[in-house]
Design a protein around this nucleic acid. Sequence first.
DNA 1: GTGGTTTCATGGGC
DNA 2: CGCCCATGAAACCA
Length: 676
Amino acid sequence: MNSASNFIPGPNQELLDAKPLRSLAPMFPAPMGAHVNQSSTPPLVCVTPVGQFPTGFGAGNLPAFGSSTTFNTTANGVFYTGASANGPIDATPISAYKTRPLGTVSLDDDDEPYSGNQITGSGRKSKRLSGLDTNGVKIKRPKQVYKNFVAGKELAFLPPSSSDPRGVVEAVHMTFEALRRRHLQLDEIQETSKRADLKAGAIMMASNIRANMGKRVGAVPGVEIGDIFYFRMELCVIGLHAPSMGGIDYMSAKFGTDEDSVAICIVAAGGYENEDEDTDTLVYSGSGGNSKNSEERHDQKLERGNLALERSLHRKNEIRVVRGFKDPFCLTGKIYIYDGLYKIQESWKERTKSGINCFKYKLLREPGQPDGAAIWKMTQGWIDNAASRGRVILPDISSGAEILPVCLVNEVDHEKGPGHFTYSNQVKYLRPHSSMKPLQGCGCHSVCLPGDASCACGQHNGGDLPYSSSGLLVCRKPIIYECGEVCNCSSNCRNRVTQKGVRFHFEVFRTASRGWGLRCWEPIRAGAFVCEYTGEVIDELKVNLDDSEDDYIFQTVCPGEKTLKWNFGPELIGEESTYALPDEFQPLPIKISAKKIGNVSRFMNHSCSPNVFWQPVQYDHGDDSHPHIMFFALKHISPMTELTYDYGVAGSESHGSGSHRTKNCFCGSSNCRGVF
DNA sequence: GTGGTTTCATGGGC
DNA sequence: CGCCCATGAAACCA
């Protein structure tokens, strides 16, 4: 059932290769430029030993870590956190990224990874790679699991560590996610949940795949305001907030000759703040005392984190704030947003409902920072009431074709909209489905289950169902086979994801200089289905005729490493990598033009450091040379972040006979290839 | 769905 | 250096 609508013609067709003035570099500086020999160059392992707090602060006046110096960035991209001219808090932030080969990570205690690092205050070394846990129970991390990992295979996209803190953080973050998804997939076969997040975290910790180890006051290199997370462990591995459970991260810091324990980061779970509108203040409760049974409940004590917060009030140091919100797509889930730097304004004691004395700290957001949680609240408001979104040119360019409206906005100039096209969420094939090879189906009753060897669809996908129970793609594959009409299973089957269409509030917006772009009001989780590339399938025999004037052609050109390596998790747990090398990449014959007919996908711009990737998927026919082209999130995408994918490297291939016109790329990524 | 219960990893502190 | 344990999130169970 094709739902299509005519779109209002705009003045001038905006080209996709419009030159960006606004560089995406700070958002996506990416790591995959240099291809380094794994055996001689260690993979990403990042250690930022914490430096001493600055000396030289006058004893009389309490030093305040000014926000004016917090975000200083040097020419080579090295961040100095909370630095002042004469006394950087962390003089060796990212340049100290120490790398060591994963393949030689010792699981015996004789090779202490960080023995040379001076770690002050905190930054304890993990020594639990082998041995016993606190109860004398053997730790459930069998050595052999880690013994043979990597072994010369490509592990993760390798950031040029010293110059690209963002790339390091993203690589670590995505490695965590890949591990977590795979563990979840394995756990779901057993029908037992074994905390895939903690498992992934344990591997990251044991392998030292972490960013920003060592604590610091102020901003964390490579972590940007608005970044979102789904598990506490994610905050941990990227070095934003060290305690895996505790809400207050603190460290001992030097203030002149004084030493004080100050808070450096808090996670506000979001259970109690009802001061709606105001996203610049936060009332945070101290920790402790809150026991479930009244016997153990007691007044909070001024110790540990509470004491650190109290000292921070006096020292006036910046404190990172991570706010927790309810995940709109998962009732029990929570999303954490890094909301930048705050300072404590005041503190007091308060008696809680359960009758204990509790410390309260009022924090004020430092001025001049980009919006973080404020964007979240703003978009949540739009989701609740789309009419509250201002600057709307058209409330729904899909005219009802999509389940959720796709609004068109322009907050930049006076362009009234993109050129004429017909909106359709269906691909228009050259031949009817009935003439195409049919897709094989399964005979599962009710729903397909992971690990069911008798499920033909599971086998067709290589043994595992490609999606987790929450609908996230586990890893990238040459082609994915969803269950379809010929299958016996119901529409509730987890192997039906992309066929159900988009679930997000998209908006087509005017970019500063790249024409129109696409972004989303909701947060998008890594692995989540985003949208399909719809349009008209072009006869490959005729492609050369009018390609040169069609800027809306999708073809399966080999994308960059970040896309190709999206499934790099398995190597870490000793499984075979399914990663395809660029020279092994096999393009598909399918070409889709969204010039005349298309959906939101036609507005996605190119980036050499993208946040979305394409993935062939089958569900309604079996012609594997002409699959559906589905887009999935490469990483967690914050609301209102432009969605981009890698258009691929054109020209070098013999196929297509140069039909793909090369364009100059100005995405601004540190790994920008220059053309696409 | 919800509320109570269990388990878990980190690193501060002794 | 080794041990202890506070902490609260995530997931499960009733």
